[in-house]
Design a protein around this nucleic acid. Sequence first.
DNA 1: ACGTTTAGTTCGGACATCGACGAAAAGAGG
DNA 2: CCTCTTTTCGTCGATGTCCGAACTAAACGT
Lengths: 396, 396
Amino acid sequence: MLPWLNLGLPRTTSPAQTNHALNLSSYLARLVASGQATSRSELARVTGLARSTVSEHLLPLLRIGLIAEHEAEAGARGRPPSVLTLNPQAGVILAADIGAAKGRLAIADFGQHFIVERSIQTDVARGPDTVLAEVRTAFLQMLAERQIDARNVRLIVVGLPAPVDFASGMPVRPPIMPGWDNYPVPASFQQEFSAPVLVDNDVNLMALGEARCRPATQCPLLYVKASTGIGCGIVTHDGQLHRGADGAAGDIGHVRVPGHEEPCRCGAYGCIEAFASYGAILRKVGGDVGGDPGEAQLSALVRTAAGEIGEVIAMLVHFFNPAVIVLGGRMTQFGDEMLAGVRSVVYRRALPLATRKLSVELSTLGNRAGIIGAVVLGVEHVLSPQGLRSMMPTTE
Amino acid sequence: MLPWLNLGLPRTTSPAQTNHALNLSSYLARLVASGQATSRSELARVTGLARSTVSEHLLPLLRIGLIAEHEAEAGARGRPPSVLTLNPQAGVILAADIGAAKGRLAIADFGQHFIVERSIQTDVARGPDTVLAEVRTAFLQMLAERQIDARNVRLIVVGLPAPVDFASGMPVRPPIMPGWDNYPVPASFQQEFSAPVLVDNDVNLMALGEARCRPATQCPLLYVKASTGIGCGIVTHDGQLHRGADGAAGDIGHVRVPGHEEPCRCGAYGCIEAFASYGAILRKVGGDVGGDPGEAQLSALVRTAAGEIGEVIAMLVHFFNPAVIVLGGRMTQFGDEMLAGVRSVVYRRALPLATRKLSVELSTLGNRAGIIGAVVLGVEHVLSPQGLRSMMPTTE
DNA sequence: ACGTTTAGTTCGGACATCGACGAAAAGAGG
DNA sequence: CCTCTTTTCGTCGATGTCCGAACTAAACGT
């Protein structure tokens, strides 16, 4: 007999306690949101449920105004279906992708339409109070511009360039954000907004955004961002973000690469991001030439750095065996050099088995990956069974 | 609007198509198997279901003989419960943990009792036909010894020291197993046994075994095996094995560590397993001294190698942020040196955030981890909804 | 005008789950 | 020894979920 056995049972909730009705409603809502079905009979075909059952579970979604029906213009043979869409009036999601220096804010509805999108300056070194106050002000302004009541905000999603404990929404020992350690980001929004607040690492959101804009067969997926720092977002085989035990997963910027001894802002020496990040490259050309890089020199440096990043990625390919690696961050403005540098090393270093079907690509979403990922996380949360329950009328 | 959106929907099966009754039966069976509940009313308490519902879903399990009832000796106040256990007569699982040179075979019942266990020599270089024939012969002999009919074999689980495509059960480009590439391992058992055959990487099974013998809070878990080669098994936050896109995940033996140029059996130079594996150490002492290592020299070499493995593990900690790292393989016969060598490097290299709650431990299961993991995988498969369906009488 | 096709609704039956009740099996206490 | 309490387990009707068949609705084609 084995010492103690835990047969892969669910971690917290008992499957017996799940609310099947809510699960079905959530499933239908997500099918509508993703555009995979636009009418009742299409839902029935996709899910395999009876049409009557679909209608039944659609009722609460229509009642709370999450899903709206429209007349379809005819054109086909039979009775035209009533087209189902997520109701743009059902509420909005506020999404913030806060980078070290620049940020991006957006208001989106549950149909993933971006209503407003805006860039802001966010110098995170000025501390959480200042930065988050500016974010809140900008959000209120954007809402006012479009005449959206703050009470229509259903969810706020914030991406930060720091490890984040997702459950509590607090940054954990961020290396570049003085004053943010354990700062209660969700609470800072409670004055102006009553909606729940999700906080996550910015690279995680980018990875999620890229993963959701591709077919599910491209998971497991790694998103590697090379900008001021170097980070990595991990999406597992089943499409879930892997955040690790402390929310610190993907923090590959401080992997040490022998042969290098550059001092890193983290205090150690030889971290990959101390010599192969875009920030390191800019420091290099700034110091060497004195302000005027020159396109050719810059692209050569990028290619070298890409090779060094490729060494690390080759290791990750061995370990994680992803289906796709997506390269993002500011360094991808030299897309071809970046791609060539990474690919050459990865395909040379890694075993053929792990690279046989591997695809190394540039981000298709560019600098919008983070904000798109934030909206995706928000929509998935609102349309999840738990999210739907909070919208249902006074059952409890 | 986003280009194409796939809102984290399930990959293949529609939640609407799941058989709720089978799911519940499977859940109850796994609760009984793991010893978390031993009577109907206990099941009701744990699951939150009504006692009548528990009884109802227990019926098919009792009917197919998977679960047996025993009289309980009294002792408490009221009517003694009828104790539920997995029926030892319900059938057996054949488990094989095939290493490069040595292997381990076991017969276990669904209650995770090992009925017979045996070591065999398995020189995988002799090719799959020979090795698997010996495994089959040994299995038949073990069954005969205990007078178990071959028809009582419900499942066969095989662990191989190679990347394995789990769905098809075929090794994929194994570096050390000539002739095994794409060999249909399951088919080779079909002559003697009619049971389904699961094939997986041996390190994956060890990781699963270690993970299941610990509380679920110790996931995500990494199992690092250092023997002839170096490999790694990955268990994610929700207790699932991460096998990667090609079944090659965890193959960290061929991570290249700069500063080393030893030739590796894979054809490249500087792979970690070419100089830091137990095999490499043995070659070293064999070459240096000429056959008589000396305990002190060996343990010093182990400590050095452990530090080099620790460099790789530090990187994995950055990337994956596991809760626990379990060290296994033959090198752990120098447990203290191994542990100290790995720990010193990991805690020095990795960021404090990722190591704050990290625990680095020696395998608690030792060289039985693989065979235990194989039985666990088998039990979980048999008690899964899909596994139960195949045991149910003639519904389809 | 009438059939054809597709969409959506209504309704009764099959089945699942629950809670209440009662029976069974033990110990406690007189 | 008999009765009460306690705990377990089975049975049964009430309620709710899901399905499929039948029906209505709305378009097109001839």
